[in-house]
Each structure stands twice: as C-alpha cells, then as structure tokens.
Design a protein around this nucleic acid. Sequence first.
DNA 1: AAATGGGGCAACCGCTGCATT
DNA 2: TAATGCAGCGGTTGCCCCATT
Length: 321
Amino acid sequence: MMDVKGNSNSNSSSSTTQSDEEMVGDLRRGPWTVEEDFKLINYIATHGEGRWNSLARCAGLKRTGKSCRLRWLNYLRPDVRRGNITLEEQLMILELHSRWGNRWSKIAQHLPGRTDNEIKNYWRTRVQKHAKQLKCDVNSKQFKDTMRYLWMPRLIERIQAAATTSSTAASASPAATVSAVSTNHHLINNNDVGTGNLVIPHGVIDDDFRVSHVTPSYTPENSSTAASSDSFAAQISPVSDLTTDYYHMPVNHNPNPDYFQAGQVGFSESMISPAGYFNQGLDFQAMEHNNNQWVVESGDASDNLWNPEDIWFLQQQMNIM
DNA sequence: AAATGGGGCAACCGCTGCATT
DNA sequence: TAATGCAGCGGTTGCCCCATT
C-alpha cells in the first residue's frame, strides 16, 4: 500500500519494530502495522463496519474502537481516493469552506473519496501557508476576499485551460460544460470528480449543488465605484471567459436566506474598496520582496496560486491608491 | 556527507451529541 | 430523567521525508 508520498505503507516501516511501539495498558498506539491492517480489513469484509469498540475486540486488535474507525475511514476503506488534490477539488474546498468554515466532514461529503482528515490537512498545510505568506489571518476578511476574488478565479482559469487542451475532440468549451452541468441541477457526482469537467462555478451553491449565486458582471457603471466589490472581482480576472459567463448569469434564485448572508450580502455590504482592501490587509512590499518565493515555495504546479500576472495586478492596485 | 528546518501526513486527544438503559 | 457508552468531529501532535545549507 502506498501513501501520497510514495512510501510503502506509511506506517508499516514500524511493523518490524513492533516490540518498541507504545503500549498503553493492553492497547497499542501509534502507527498501524501491516498485520493490523489485514486483521481490520478482513474483519470488516466479513462482518461489516460499525460498533467499533466491539469490532476492535472481536478482530483481535489491541486498539481502541476509535483508532480502528479512524484507520478504516482515513486509510483502508477501498474507496479512499489518494493522490494530489485536483484543481477541481481545491476549488470545491475553497468554495465549501467559505460557506461552512471548518466543517471538514461536511466538506468531505461533497468530495467523494476524500476524507475530512485529508481536507483538513490540505487546508492547514496549503491554504494557511498562503495566508501566512500574506501576513494575514486565514479567517480574516482580507484573506477570504483574496480567495474569492483572486484564488478561485485563478483556479477556474486553470481548470478551463486544462479542459480546453484535453477536450478539443469533444469541441465543447469548459463554459459550455459548466452550463450543461449546471442545468442538470446536480453539479457534483462521483463521475465528475477528477474527470477534468468543471463542476463548480464561481458562485455559491446550495445544498443540492445548484448554482444559486453568481457574482454580477463587471460594467462601466460599477467600474467607477471604488467600493464596488463586483468591479474588483471582474478586474481581478479579466481574461476569464468562464468567469465572465458566470458573472453574466442574471439573478439569485435561491430561496435560502442563509445563502444570501454568506454569499452575497456579506460581500457587498462589507467589502471594502480595492484600495482600502490592499491598505488594510496585504503587505505587498513584503510580497514584492518575495516574488520569487511565491512561485518557488508554492511547490507543484497545482499549488501555484499566484503568477506574475496576479502580482502585477496587485501592484497596480497599490499604485492607484 | 552531515546537520537542520520545514512540509506533509497519519494518528491521537478531547469534546460534543446521540442512543440506549 | 439521569447515567452511561459510543460514534463522530475538529484540533493538535509526532514522525518521516526531503530540500537546503
């Protein structure tokens, strides 16, 4: 069994040194051995999961029920999806986290095969890292706005680019794909994840994953209004056909008042102007000094959230203040 | 080549809510 | 109704690997 980092069963290395693993009373703790994994898998294959405490006893595992449950759900379960978080999944996580906060299990329910632990780790290691680089709190409004107006459109563009290059045979634009899926009323299903289809729009989705809110389009009228978050949003991502499509979707049809709180009112009422935004939140001098770091430290390609275009834009915002 | 620091991931801990008795 | 046990969730920790010095 290989983990994400390519280790041969991340914990099995300890299986040869079982004698020095930690024992608390009659219970074992720490990394699972291959034998333990087999015991758990075999037992669940025969008897099913659930009733974890008795399962642990009956399976002959010197583990707590909680430990067995965790091992099964996060690692051994056959439908656990391993490997890098895809762009679509990143977008999904950002979107859902903006709605629900640290409700990892709830978010995980909409990412088939991904565990809450994995999503939580992703958030802590990737997203929080970028917040740290921006010198702002991950829960701050500035960072949330940055995610919504810069990071997510960027992800959409990259998904679009990937889809365009990989699906020329289908001759369907990503926007068309999204549109088709959206009208299907269920944007997310197992088949969509990881297929390259864009399954999440730049908007807020309701519990049935309908498109329930989109950012209004950028117009000359609102462009002159410094306090317009919409104009900011549109400027951020000026080259995105996909986002343009979303922005032109007319109105919010979601009857759920909570939705408006989170996705619309919150931004339009409290969004500060781009100038104020940058004044208050982001240390762009620090960013400028670390331009190379932004790219280099971001790791693999799927983690490069900021490119020179973005940074150029952000610096322009600084200049017009 | 060795030391060191950071990143990433798996696992544990503590708390909460629910079901059962 | 209170007590108890269990499942699940989110936060945190510890360890391993890798890149850098």
